[in-house]
């Protein structure tokens, strides 16, 4: 069952089309990755769902109820984590949590325990009373997310929540998001970090030029775009005397490549070709298609900025 449904969302700014009929659905407890090049329309779509952009056409339904930018009070179950560190730098972590909690309607009675939980959740308990201007980028990012969930939304929109942080902080942030999912929160996340989307998202929507280019699980996207073939790379002890049948020559003479659909069935044959050429295999790498290849396949290599 979907908690958020966008159907045919269209939006233009002057003569520039930002959204050209985007449709997507977010399932309950799902982590949906929204991918696309710069200017593809990701942020516009997130802002439209958050009520900050008035659509020219199309509909948005939250928990089965259609909402617009003018709809008051319908977004109580929605949380938004902006791309910027939208916090007050001279306030402490606790004070930031407190003011954002109150602004999102958390009652004074509920606030203190939720702040304590949020500080534990973000591992910022020991720095709770320091002004956040002294925090590292990763700490601010974690707090940025926490300020968006104090009112316990059932749907959370995250606009590039891991931009500019180190791998450790990124891992911590995805652990936090996994905890939210376990609590039943549905997450829509935009990111440029394809390996993160590949590792953490249940489904992925790729949008480009304001339209959905592809949507589905990673396997579905791979199948629908670059195909499910694995790439096999062999490093030999010496360059073969003649081209090996079924292989492509690599950058250096000792590296050859082949594509297989069934590794177990086709691998012995490939090794046999090498052996017949009088070479020995010193290294083997089998690689499945990545989201990177799918993304490039869908959106091309042309720069967008």
């Amino acid at each position: 069952m979907s908690v958020l449904k966008v159907a045919g969302a269209r939006k233009s700014f002057d003569k520039t089309q930002a959204l050209g009929g985007v449709s997507l659905e977010l399932g309950a407890g799902e982590l949906l990755g929204l991918l696309g090049p710069n200017g593809a329309g990701k942020t516009t779509l997130v802002r439209a769902i958050a009520g900050r952009v008035r659509l020219d056409g199309g509909t948005i339904e939250l928990f089965g109820r259609e909402i617009t930018a003018a709809t008051n009070g319908a977004r109580a179950g929605l949380g938004v984590v902006p791309q910027e560190i939208a916090l007050y730098p001279l306030l402490t972590a606790r004070e930031n949590l407190s003011v954002w909690g109150r602004l999102h309607g958390v009652t004074p009675g509920d606030l203190a325990p939720r702040i304590t939980r949020a500080l534990d959740w973000t591992a910022l308990g020991d720095r709770a009373d320091e002004p956040i201007k002294r925090f590292s980028g990763g700490m601010k990012r974690r707090l940025n997310i926490a300020c968006g969930i104090l009112h316990e939304p059932r749907v959370l929109l995250l606009d590039e929540p891991t931009v500019g942080v180190d791998p450790q902080s990124r891992e911590r942030i995805y652990d936090m998001l996994a905890e939210l999912r376990e609590r039943g929160v549905s997450l829509l996340l935009t990111t440029h970090q394809l390996e993160e989307a590949e590792a953490h998202c249940q489904r992925i929507v790729v949008i480009d030029h304001g339209k959905v280019a592809a949507a589905g699980t990673l396997a579905e996207l791979v199948e629908a775009t670059v195909g499910a073939e694995r790439r096999v790379t062999l490093t030999l002890d010496r360059a073969p005397d003649r081209p090996l049948p079924g292989f492509e020559a690599g950058e250096s003479g000792v590296v050859v490549r082949a594509h297989v659909r069934d590794v177990a069935a086709e691998m012995p044959g490939l090794l046999g070709v090498v052996r017949d050429a009088g070479c020995k295999v010193t290294d083997v790498e089998v690689r499945s298609p990545s989201l990177q290849s799918v993304f490039i396949h869908l959106t091309g290599r042309e720069l967008r900025e």
Binding site: A50, G51, R52, R75, V80, P82, Q83, E84, I85, A86, L87, Y88, W100, L103, H104, G105
Partner: peptide, 13 residues
Amino acid sequence: ESGTLERLLTSRA
């Protein structure tokens, strides 16, 4: 500039 106004506008204010 910092994005807090945008965030405020997504709150109840």
